[in-house]
Amino acid sequence: MREDQAAFIELHEVCKVFEVHRRTGLLRRERREVRAVDGLSFTVPRGEMVGYIGPNGAGKSTTVKMLTGILTPSSGRLRVAGIDPSRERTRLARRIGVVFGQRTTLWWDLPLGDSFALVRRMYRIPDARYHVNLERCVQLLDLGGLLEVPVRQLSLGQRMRGDIAAALLHDPDVLYLDEPTIGLDVVSKAKVREVLRKVNAEQGTTVLLTTHDLTDIEQLCKRVMVIDQGRLVYDGALAGLHAVGESERMLVVDLEREFPPIEDLPGARPVRVEGPRQWLAFPAGQSAAPLVAALAERYPLADLSVREPDIEQVIARMYGSAP
């Protein structure tokens, strides 16, 4: 089996068409074709960590389902590690790990440790390998006290860490993560990102990350692909995406007392004032540090925070359409 290093994940003109039936009368049905993925082509080399983003319903999940072999493409060519996922789903399963943010792959009623033990046998992980990997996951993901706890009793953050561990125990070559940080608190998010970075750097695991949180991408991925209406609309660095989309970050400042809108700050413009709190927009490609320094020099600052633009806004700006 040929395993092209330059194209570990490879899609060529992949389409997925769903037939949707809509009841229009008692017996009459209307048939409509929905092209969830429409002529998608891209390649991901081995060991790369790629962000895969797009608005809801853009075709992200459908793509991931085709890459894992859950769904069969309607047309086009698709290979992961040289394997055609829909034809050899079970063989591919040993080489990929999948984490769904909204759905657990663990066994709901079993203690976390039992779930891991079952994964070990299902994937036929050699003993030595399993113990090393489990040890590493327990340490990295802080699972020490949780192995005896049934999955349904875990908090969302704990469960997510458990899911990530379960997806890593068999040393997958590819890791797909669908919204792995959704609903998590800041500490858990940071933990998850740290682990993904480590796995990618140390094991050379190829990672495809789907997310709504641009910070995930910013901190993890050099490359980002944007999909909209089933088509790839951007493929490159995140900074480039901001430039294309002319997206803005928001500096939210709390001053010690009320001031007129801050107009005299180069690179930033006030968009909203609410008592002592002001919202200043500045280009996403620009650093916030000099802005904050200039601000602190002229105004009495009480507090401040920076808000990232969300993906919908970035994409909406790219196409000038409302989200």
Partner: peptide
């Protein structure tokens, strides 16, 4: 879908 992801 989860069942389809496992090598069984």
């Amino acid at each position: 879908d989860i069942l389809l992801l496992r090598p069984v």
